[in-house]
Amino acid sequence: MSRLTHTFAQLAQQQKKALIPYITAGDPHPDKTVEIMHGLVEAGADVIELGVPFSDPMADGPVIQRASERALAFKVGLRDVLNMVQQFRTQDNKTPIVLMGYANPIEAMGTQKFADLAKQAGVDGVLTVDYPPEECSDFTQQLKAHDMDPVFLLSPTTEASRVKLIVEQASGFVYYVSLKGVTGAKNMDVQEVQQRVAEIRAMTGLPIGVGFGVRDAATATAVAGFADAVVVGSRMVQEIEQSSVDNVVANTAQLTRSLRQAIDA
């Protein structure tokens, strides 16, 4: 059983919902990433989504674009991200890590080599934003052969027939994008999202995470009422952007604690 599946099963047993903060690896400084990750876990994160910096993050809003640019200023590449995961694993062998990024850095490394190295480093899931299931069946198999979970997005415009196709390929969990647009665009329409999540749940037994619009505690509470995981990306990255390098660990942990409370409420 993969670490992701195990974590979701355990949370379900405790009748708890997963909190998944997102940070971009290398933001604000490559030396801070692992420290931030440990802080997030201590503050109540169940899974960490770790962004791989990319020069052309087409699906991301300005907040996460800037995070990518800050990381790229230190030339943080996929190899560096895997090193960070490996370093994190020396102290934490329990918290699942999902890499989120774009296809090109993975293809530049080679998908098979990436699968080997990611497994060695201790990665648990991979969400490749611009790899729809039709274009990446080989890669999906390579991940699964290494006991890693291919994580896919579902969007408000995804037709039921496509949801079926995607959940057949996916494992670990599926990620419902709660609004039309890029990451961090605006607040979500909670009722609409709840309706869609119910529809998706009728088609899959996989845990369902919701993200792309969770900007405050109230939204987190509401989403935790019907989803299995709450993903907080742009809001977390904003916290990093507004913090000094010295207090970034404390501030992201503080935000995570407040979200944890909201989700458990």
């Binding site: 087409m58 699906a59 296809a103 934003v129 611009d130 790899y131 729809p132 039709e134 274009e135 896919f152 997005l153 579902l154 969007s155 408000p156 415009t157 995804t158 037709e159 496509r162 995607i166 994008v177 039309k180 647009g181």
Partner: peptide, 20 residues
């Protein structure tokens, strides 16, 4: 049918654009 010219082309976009 999916826009492939041999190994090139295709549809490599986030799920949010697929239906459009």
């Amino acid at each position: 049918a999916r826009g492939h010219f041999g190994p090139f082309g295709g549809i490599f976009v986030a799920e949010t654009l697929v239906e459009a």
